[in-house]
């Protein structure tokens, strides 16, 4: 399954980068996340609860950031297992500065799905993925807005 998209955020790339690299922040903004532990440099284990149509399960596994070039890009490697199937993904994330105070976050990657997750309608699953992505960015926007407020 192809995962591509982009979102413009009202913050400079360095601010966005800071949030994305911060474990407690990530634990707040990743939808459905119930556990996030750092296991090494840029590596985490996680438990994520997802309930959306036919996708209903507890996913656990690893998240890893690779090929990090601060503050412009990194690759997120995701390996998540669940009883309804497993997901493996490598997603390249680019932070592109737009007129100083804005950043475009673009992501592009491929997810390998297996089991029920793969069989029960990829068209539904991609909808679920889109919804989760939207939630993630909306949460991130709130975080960025919140951190701005704190500074004022």
């Amino acid at each position: 399954m192809q995962l591509t998209g982009k979102q413009v955020l009202n913050a400079a790339p360095s601010k966005v980068w800071e949030k994305l690299m911060d474990t407690p922040t990530l634990a707040r903004i990743v939808p459905g996340i119930t556990k996030l532990e750092q296991t090494g440099e840029n590596a985490y284990t996680s438990t994520i609860q997802i309930k959306m149509g036919p996708v209903n399960g507890s996913f656990s596994g690893n998240l890893q950031m690779q090929d990090i070039t601060e503050p412009t890009n990194f690759t997120l490697k995701v390996q998540q297992n669940s009883k309804i199937g497993n997901a493996n993904a490598a997603i390249k994330v680019d932070l592109i500065p737009l007129n100083g105070e804005q950043t475009e976050v673009a992501f592009d990657g491929d997810a390998k799905l297996s089991g029920l997750l793969a069989g029960m309608g990829q068209r539904v699953i991609s909808g679920v993925a889109n919804t989760l992505t939207k939630q993630f960015f909306s949460n991130l926007e709130k975080e960025l807005a919140g951190s701005n407020t704190e500074k004022v």
Binding site: L113, G115, L116, A118, G119, M120, G121, Q122
Partner: peptide, 14 residues
């Protein structure tokens, strides 16, 4: 089937 051998329309919905 996708290239990973997953049957991608494995339900009556699909």
């Amino acid at each position: 089937f996708d290239s990973n051998g997953q049957l991608t329309n494995a339900s009556y919905m699909d």
